[in-house]
Design a protein around this nucleic acid. Structure first.
Lengths: 253, 253
DNA sequence: CGCGTCCTTGAGCGTATTCAATCGATGTGG
DNA sequence: CCACATCGATTGAATACGCTCAAGGACGCG
């Protein structure tokens, strides 16, 4: 547990001191130019679980990046169904859904207490126009976000439940590893229901999938604690491999 | 049928004369600045059905916009499954999938013979940095593309087959209407299989869905010709409404 | 300790898939 | 000009997968 004092010290640190520097907007930007970006970034005190950064219909004022913690973006369709559009780990831009019409389509909800950097969008665009390397990096970060959306799409289409779940756990591990955390032993920031709404499944199906993976010795689950015991087997399942039957396996050609 | 002579004349026309001007990158850009954009746009002779603009792994050199015709972007997963990531109508940017890593993840295939504008990406970024309104518009267009991807996602998650199909036909009509074509009477540029891979269904299910909609008097289908007979009913079905009972249909105003 | 929330497990059902055959349009060659 | 091949679309029948409904269990918080 960190004390509040330490957190406040963290708050004062700029991009130059941030451990996510190379994964976030500042990546590949020189010292000089970085200062310009740093000047417009607002660092806010921690947001609590369940707090929202924005709601559907809100005007696009800022984009956000978590320094730690996790967020989900949720889109509510007119018939009341909630769809989890994405999960956002530290370093991943939040709020791009409003780029199209200038208003947010989703709401962004904190899954844990989290520290976020707020980047006023107008100013970001202005600075990006002046700093070519920032413009480039902004486009790259947007592109990565598009890439994650496509990965998400790939999870949903014509894949069966267990495959989606394996893909999800595998992909989450990858992303965690990217930001320097363990990809094989982590705590899920989201509920089973969130996962279900992200994967397009019933929450019971997600639960059963976890149980099945555990029975097969691929992972160990206790509540939200995940340990990946057989990473290669998980990867195999994620890419359409047959689940290994308990005793004998039947051939499918 | 247009003659080649007419087509060549069309090719020479710049953005200022293009009917898509207000829907495409030039939207909201002044005469002066438009010329700068126009100078870097390459207009190519028509591409034939089945031709590719780029393939997975290709470096990002240009982004593309169709002036007419239609494209699909397809992502092939390692297990060989093909997923249709998106359909692209005139005025919609193609090639943004490479923004993240600088290499394309998908291939872009022409569904019809089509005329495309090619915009070298480096130069586009350079001009965008000089022309604020273009930078703004570029971000907006990217955002709209993200928005379409989210709509796509919304079609796939927790919606049943008939709902997805209604949503698809409805949405396609909207997009066609946007570019000045009829949204209630059109020819599908893509096969049933493409639609199936886009909607995450088996192609037989798509076929059955069309048949069902026709039986219910909502649409008329002959091959790829679609006529929407009851637009409001289609919209109702698209948003989770119950299919109408077999015998009588109720009027909805 | 008790309550609420989150997660797990079970049973039956419904929807979409798979496998397979047919049909229709289009195009090619005899 | 028509037989034949080919491709796309439609239709049918049986299966399987995931959903719904329902109950029970575990964990965390006051």
């Amino acid at each position: 547990m960190e004390t509040n004092v330490v957190d406040l010290a963290q708050l004062r640190r700029g991009c130059a001191q941030c451990s996510l520097q190379q994964l976030c907007l500042p990546a590949g930007i020189g010292q000089q130019d970085l200062q310009q970006l740093d000047d417009i970034v607002r660092r806010r005190r921690p947001v609590a679980t369940g707090e929202r950064l924005f709601r559907p219909g809100d005007a696009l004022t800022s984009v956000y990046v978590a320094r730690d913690g996790a967020f989900k973006t949720v889109s509510t369709s007119e018939d009341g169904g909630e769809q989890v559009v994405g999960f956002h780990l530290p370093g991943e831009l939040i709020g791009l859904d409003a780029l199209g019409h200038g208003r947010h389509r989703c709401e962004a909800v904190a899954l844990t207490t989290a520290n976020v950097c707020e980047v006023p969008f107008e100013q970001l665009a202005t600075v990006a126009a002046q700093v070519p390397s920032l413009q480039q990096q902004l486009l790259r970060v947007i592109g990565q976000s598009v890439g994650r959306d496509q990965d998400h799409l790939g999870m949903l289409v014509r894949r069966q439940a267990n495959e989606r779940i394996a893909l999800f756990l595998h992909g989450l591990g990858e992303r965690l590893r990217n930001i320097g955390e363990s990809g094989s032993r982590y705590r899920l920031p989201m509920s089973r229901e969130d996962i279900a709404r992200y994967l397009g499944l019933a929450l019971e199906t997600v639960s059963r999938g976890f149980t099945r993976l555990q029975e097969d010795g691929v992972i160990a689950v206790t509540g939200r604690r995940i340990e990946i015991l057989q990473p290669d087997e998980l990867a195999r399942l994620a890419h359409g491999g047959e689940p290994a039957p308990p005793v004998q396996r039947r051939a499918r050609s």
